[in-house]
């Protein structure tokens, strides 16, 4: 009997591919965001709401990840932003391999500044799978519960941006925005937090300003 010491990260292969994606995006000056949330928190709606603010200032592309259908990429296309759909079939998260293939399409579009990757709705697995993005943004809606950061620490810990969405619904739920912010900052003190409503438009322009700033940082 032989013991073979392996000491290999299970996700080593995904991390290698993610690093390759990261290098390829950086070398072309593209800022990328991995957008995650539970199903129905409003990722696609947020992209639709941001579209009129982003389009005039930033060449933006979207990669959409879903188990089935291209409904989300169709919605994004209708909002005026080019989008590519990845249907995973059964995988509950995007991985660096799938995103790597979609990058061929991204790089075929000259002058892209911002790439938004809308992940499959899932608060667990995307935290483990590096796609090669610059930042991760978690969307948490007021219809979900202000204790979610405590219940899903990995994804909030891995994120750089938190968008508290559906603020128009807060008066009708038990969601306490102050408590949600405090819980999120407890898990990740470095989070940049935004509050938005796609229905009323509240906070959308401020979020688009932030994304534009990130995309243009350090570039003429």
């Amino acid at each position: 009997m032989h013991e073979i010491l392996i000491e290999e990260k299970v996700l080593a292969r995904n991390n290698e591919l993610a690093s390759a994606n990261r290098a390829a995006l950086k070398s072309r000056g593209i800022f990328s965001i991995n957008m995650v949330s539970s199903p129905g928190a409003g990722k696609t709606s947020l992209i639709e709401a941001l579209a009129p603010f982003l389009k005039p200032r930033l060449n933006t592309l979207v990669i959409e990840g879903d188990l089935q259908t291209d409904l989300d990429s169709q919605r994004v296309l209708r909002s005026g932003i080019p989008a590519k759909q990845i249907t995973t079939g059964k995988a509950c998260h995007l991985d660096a391999h799938a995103v790597g293939h979609a990058l061929d399409w991204v790089f075929g579009n000259p002058g892209v500044r911002l790439l938004i990757i809308e992940n499959v709705g899932n608060m667990v697995c995307p935290a483990e799978y590096d796609l090669g993005e610059d930042m991760m943004a978690t969307i948490l809606s007021t219809a979900e519960g202000d204790d979610k950061p405590l219940k899903y620490p990995a994804i909030f810990s891995a994120s750089d941006i938190l968008v508290i969405n559906k603020t128009d619904l807060a008066p009708f739920t038990d969601f306490d925005i102050k408590r949600a912010r405090a819980n999120a900052l407890k898990i990740n003190p470095g989070l940049a937090i935004f509050e938005t409503s796609c229905r009323t438009g509240a906070g959308i322009e401020a979020l688009s300003d932030y994304l534009a700033k990130l995309s243009c940082a350090g570039r003429p």
Binding site: E3, I6, E8, K9, V10, L185
Partner: peptide
């Protein structure tokens, strides 16, 4: 302080295998 580094607890590793 809130500048905290996670020094353990994020691992997902295959340490070793026993085989013939």
């Amino acid at each position: 302080g809130t500048d905290v580094e996670k020094i353990a607890g994020t691992e997902l590793d295959i340490v070793s295998i026993d085989a013939l």
